[in-house]
């Protein structure tokens, strides 16, 4: 019995410790009002991404908004029937906006995580092992730098049917180079620190040294670049969709902008432009603002006296 409660207490202690660590990591949010605002926007966006399609009053693509007489409401300004107005095909902008958050969230989240995870791994391995491993991986990043992202993505998407996971994969495949470089240079400096030498001296294996001593000390910068990766992925996805290379089965904010731009109604239909444009701008900016605030906390170089 007593051992049971002890174990329980131990578990609570662990959970508590993890929770404190997480809280410490996010403590900067309390000090930086902008980052806090950004966090609220991100929370709202995640909510939209999860529940937006259910909240939408109409089906974003199938449903056509009609007046009492059955006539299609084309390109009407916000009204009681359609709070955000309608598109030139008589679709409800509000519904499209609510439904469009989901692909943005999926690509942003998984693209960002993929970018961060891939880049972090490559960066740590490359920086820790050095030598030919490093040379090889770094030349690989050089290669992804030199191949222009947008044209290559467009090319790949022309002869593979675009779907949201393919887009996510392509984005991660091109963006990992950013965190990889930064993490690597960070690892290079951590590797020279005494405690790493000390770990070797006490007989720790390469894997152990890398996992327990090097990786935890570059993790913050990995988090940071994962956050930036989210913003980049969202921007990239919106850009692809804007050029007409999005997932054709899903409404996304980028696609909404493409439709208004292609239909030539930008001059009049401000209600059609604003929701997706503001949505994308708000989420990418918020993520960046949070990242910046976090960077101020973790970058020792700029933590000089205030």
């Amino acid at each position: 019995m007593s051992t049971g409660t002890e174990r329980e207490a131990e578990v609570y202690k662990r959970v508590d410790a993890v929770w404190t660590t997480v809280c410490d990591q996010f403590a900067f949010l309390r000090q930086d009002r902008l980052a806090f605002g950004g966090m609220l926007v991100v929370a709202a966006f995640v909510f939209l991404g999860l529940f937006g399609p259910f909240l939408a009053p109409h089906d974003p693509i199938e449903h056509t908004v009609r007046g009492g007489d059955g006539s299609v409401f084309r390109l009407t300004a916000p009204s009681a029937e359609a709070f955000f107005g309608t598109t030139s095909y008589g679709k409800d902008v509000l519904s499209q906006f609510l439904a469009g958050a989901r692909p943005t969230l999926i690509v942003g989240l998984f693209g960002g995580l993929g970018t961060g995870a891939l880049g972090f791994t490559v960066g740590v391995v490359s920086g820790y092992y050095g030598g030919w491993v490093d040379e090889l991986l770094m030349r690989l990043t050089d290669l992804t730098f030199s191949l222009p992202f947008m044209p290559m993505a467009l090319l790949l998407l022309t002869f593979m049917t675009p779907n949201i996971w393919l887009i996510t994969a392509i984005i991660a495949a091109f963006l990992w180079k950013m965190p990889a470089r930064v993490v690597r240079s960070e690892v290079l400096s951590v590797r020279e620190r005494t405690f790493v030498k000390s770990a070797r001296a006490s007989g720790a294996s390469d894997l152990r040294t890398m996992l327990y001593h090097v990786a935890p000390n570059v993790l913050p910068i990995g988090f940071l670049y994962t956050a930036y990766g989210v913003a980049w992925a969202i921007a990239a996805q919106a850009s692809l969709a804007f050029l007409g290379f999005g997932d054709p089965t899903m409404t996304s904010w980028g696609r909404m902008l493409r439709q208004v731009f292609a239909s030539g109604n930008m001059r009049v239909a401000w209600w059609w432009v604003l929701p997706p444009a503001v949505g994308i701008a708000a989420i990418t900016t918020s993520v960046f603002l949070i990242g910046r605030a976090y960077e101020e906390v973790i970058n020792p170089e700029i933590q000089t006296d205030q």
């Binding site: 620190r193 005494t194 000390s198 006490s202 007989g203 327990y212 935890p216 000390n217």
Partner: peptide
Amino acid sequence: QIIFQDPFDSLNPRQTVRKLVGEPLTIH
């Protein structure tokens, strides 16, 4: 065993004293 120069850098900042001192035991 070897003890290094810089006490500010010779301990992994992300480990507690328990982990720091206990790690050699685990390894060996």
